[in-house]
Amino acid sequence: MNGKLVSVLFLCCIASPAPAFDFNLDDLGKTLDTLKKVQQATTDINEPKEIKLGSGIASNLLGAAPLLQNQRVQKYVNSVGRWLALQTERPGLPWQFGVLNDDDVNAFAAPGGYVFITKGLLAQMRSEAELAGVLAHEIAHVLRKHHLQAIKQGARASLFAEFAEHALQEKAADPALAKLVSAGTEIYARGLDKNDEFEADRMGVVIATRAGYDPYGLPAVLQTLQGMNAQDSSLALLFKTHPGLNDRLSLLDRAMSGQFDRFEQQPDHAPRFMTVMNKTGILVNTGNRR
């Protein structure tokens, strides 16, 4: 029994006006039930609800930054992303990947299989393996439901329980859903738990490797960003919402610790990446760091 439960039980006991042991067992049962519901809410949100919540958050994100108008790039990023997702424990989610037409350097995930990457981040990459590494990091957030946990921690517990409990409404407006969607969007301005980011880094490397890519794609992108001018305003939101790049690189280095040497011959498909990007006007990193 955890601490919260114990303290609630204790409060129930001392708050009873009647003789101490005369409390109503039914009421106690109900209190325990509610507590349990709140605690299990993250796991209790079923997949359709997770997707519904994610689509609302994705729609909000698209309200803040539009999609890049280039079908070839969008299809390419979806191909890499879906191929990566097939190597994970949730291959069947309706995965959707989008490139945002924004010069900010960032990437986002929303519950249920939504993954976004900005044009600004794409422009810093040099190969398909680097793209795969970043997408795999975001995929990991979806797999581990990091956003759901963050929403749950931030929102009123009863709100989350309400959404988890009620049947999903297709047509009618669901006030609990609307509030959770807003809360979920705000998390992009605040960031996830630091350890969730480190976990997504470690999982991202593994997922990219499982998909047949050079394992060092994600570390390479992080290293590129580490080399950029920290005062660059296009990095401000990423820096505010993520742990420091030196910390991320050091932890990845230690976690990987030589275990990936045997995958170093896996392709990075730089030529394929360059071919797709070269015809888009997206500035690809050519070594002349801006």
Binding site: G56, S59, N60, L61, L62, G63, A64, A65, P66, L100, N101, D102, D103, D104, N106, T118, S182, T185, E186, Y188, A189, S233, S234, L237
Partner: peptide, 13 residues
């Protein structure tokens, strides 16, 4: 910049 914190805090779908 499109991805301002303002837009994420006061989002429009």
């Amino acid at each position: 910049r499109g991805l301002s914190e303002e837009k994420l805090k006061n989002p429009s779908p």
